[in-house]
Nucleic acid binder design. Structure first.
Lengths: 98, 98
DNA sequence: AAGCTATTTGGCAAGTTTGACAAATAGCCA
DNA sequence: TGGCTATTTGTCAAACTTGCCAAATAGCTT
């Protein structure tokens, strides 16, 4: 796999994560699997909008879903994606030192 | 700082990283500081486009710059942003197990 | 089948991103 | 000052994103 392909792949995953609502979703799913309506109630946006955010994360293979009766439960595949948090905090702490 | 603010902040940083060219830049800057023309030659895009990619990374406080004569050298502030790489590889390896 | 709940998809408007070209700026050196 | 190199900024078009509403789908339960 070329470096080019690697950058393209990683950009795809980072892009999928790069939205406040989607980061909230990942954080929540780290604790437990959730269905769409549950997440909508927590965030307070339209169900259709929540469904699309979940589709974006799923498309990037960060989460997957399984249907139980008429509900769809989403599950975080790779909790380590949230490890970036530590680094981000460090970055933030450095601001102002410019 | 509220969780809301944290997600917004992290989304801003991830979004700045979420482009193949910008990931290449970060990887390169991890090895050594570079000026704009150098990076343009490596990537093969317009100098103005490269300058804007660098501005996006700088605006997110991931890199900074200092001018030496008529060249601007860019410097990676927090090499750990690239640690996500490992996790991404893990994610990638998991694909297909769906 | 009809009614119900949960979720996804179509379509649209407003806003953002990307990349290129041209023009502007900044700083060197003669 | 004028010419030179390096970089940034203005402007534009094409493409993409986000959020909402309405309509479609999926799967229970009666």
């Amino acid at each position: 796999m070329s470096n080019d392909q690697r950058y393209t792949y990683m950009a795809r995953v980072l892009k999928a994560m790069a939205h406040p609502t989607r980061l909230f979703i990942l954080d929540k799913l780290k604790q437990q699997d959730c269905c769409v309506g549950e997440l909508r109630d927590l965030v307070g946006i339209d169900m259709s909008t929540m469904s699309r955010h979940l589709a974006i994360l799923k498309e990037a293979d960060i989460i997957n879903s399984n249907k139980v009766n008429n509900q769809v439960f989403y599950h975080l595949l790779c909790p380590c994606v949230l490890d970036v948090y530590h680094c981000m905090s460090e970055l933030k702490a450095n601001r102002g030192n410019k």
